[in-house]
């Protein structure tokens, strides 16, 4: 790898790690994902700063063209992550669905004898209540 490419890879890696750390610190990532992405950042950092590590591992595994090792690992990892997200998404959808059901049941079966949701719908009754309490 030439010095220039090495520099570009290093800068990109540093940016990625910084972005991950910032997101974790701001608390927008759940802890389990922050661990995941920090590990990824660490691996990237090592691979970028000591490129010979990847070469030597590839050699040990009998892989002739070293970049394939990186691509293999990257694709495999991303595939696992995508599968995990699909799983999480399905689970969340199930939960949202059952929450929607619960909400509909809790709102209560309204029939014409009682309209429990009506006062929530109409802004005028709200205002009237507000005036009474003033």
């Amino acid at each position: 790898m030439s010095v220039e490419t090495h520099a570009v890879v290093a800068v990109l890696t540093i940016l990625a790690v910084v972005a991950i750390v910032r997101m974790v610190r701001r608390g927008v990532l759940k802890a389990k994902y922050s661990v995941l992405w920090l590990t990824v950042g660490l691996v990237l950092a090592v691979a970028a700063s000591v490129p010979t590590v990847l070469d030597r591992v590839a050699e040990r595994l009998g892989i002739w063209y070293q970049p394939t090792l990186f691509l293999l690992l990257a694709i495999g990892f991303l595939l696992l992550v995508a599968m995990h997200f699909s799983y999480e998404l399905s689970r969340l959808e199930r939960r949202v669905r059952s929450l929607a059901e619960e909400l509909a049941l809790l709102r209560g079966p309204v029939s014409d004898s009682d309209h429990p949701t009506n006062h929530l719908d109409s802004p005028t009754s709200h205002q009237a209540e507000g005036r009474e309490t003033d």
Binding site: A100, L105, P109, V110, S111, D112, H115
Partner: peptide
């Protein structure tokens, strides 16, 4: 529905016919 005297369960957002039916079965 309520004006006509039916029992009405309101979902907070559209779940599609299958989701609506499931709620009906549950009730």
């Amino acid at each position: 529905a309520t004006d006509a005297g039916a029992t009405c369960l309101r979902l907070p957002f559209n779940l599609g016919i299958g989701g609506a039916l499931r709620l009906g079965f549950r009730y």
